[in-house]
């Protein structure tokens, strides 16, 4: 018998009565109002910069200014051309986020907006673009989106990479980006 069969057999041999799943989970638990304010507060806690801007063009302009003469990468779906060939050595990257979560500042990034899966982790400074219209209240609402698990890879990013493994001293910039900025596009 294969290990697979053995394991499944062992589980079946001790099968208990079915324990009930909770009734349908709520689609949202936090109130919808003031999503933008909540989101901005959440960002401040994780050390994420927030820039409220009025258009995508304004956002990429700001990004180009920040990048200056460093190598940069502009993700699919955003205006502009990137400056490098090796994405792993990117200094600055800007990517389009699908939606943001107000309770924890997480932004959902889908694979097709990354260009390369490694970009959001390897770049030194990461900029994520999110529309104010695409904010949700909490993770319940987030996980009701079809976008989750739609592609081969997707990730919630909720700040610059960090660690406190040395005597619990917080250090921003562990293995991922040293900084994260969110460019929040308003609708008015």
């Amino acid at each position: 018998m294969s290990s697979r069969q053995q394991i499944l057999e062992r589980i079946r041999a001790v099968r208990q009565n079915e324990q009930k799943l909770p009734d349908e989970l709520p689609k949202r638990m936090l109130p919808l109002e003031e999503l933008r304010e909540r989101f901005i507060v959440s960002c401040s806690i994780t050390g994420t910069g927030v820039h409220v801007l009025s258009s995508m063009e304004e956002a990429t302009f700001l990004f180009m200014q920040k990048a200056g003469s460093c190598s940069f990468y502009i993700g699919p779906g955003l205006p502009g051309n990137n400056s490098i060939e090796d994405p792993v050595r990117t200094d600055y990257a800007i990517l389009k986020g699908e939606f943001g979560v107000a309770e924890n500042n997480a932004v959902w990034l889908k694979e097709s907006s990354m260009g390369d899966r490694v970009i959001p982790f390897a770049s030194l400074h990461l900029y994520l673009l999110v529309s104010e219209d695409d904010l949700v209240a909490d993770m319940h609402e987030a996980y009701h989106k079809d976008l989750i698990f739609q592609e081969g890879f997707g990730v919630f990013i909720a700040g610059p990479s960090k660690t406190a493994d040395i005597e619990q001293s917080l250090v921003i910039g562990a293995h991922g980006p040293l900084s994260l900025d969110i460019l929040l596009i308003t609708n008015h």
């Binding site: 924890n104 989750i148 990730v155 909720a158 990479s161």
Partner: peptide
């Protein structure tokens, strides 16, 4: 923390 920095799917 309310969430880890990276929640990868």
């Amino acid at each position: 923390q309310p969430i880890t920095i990276y929640t990868s799917h």
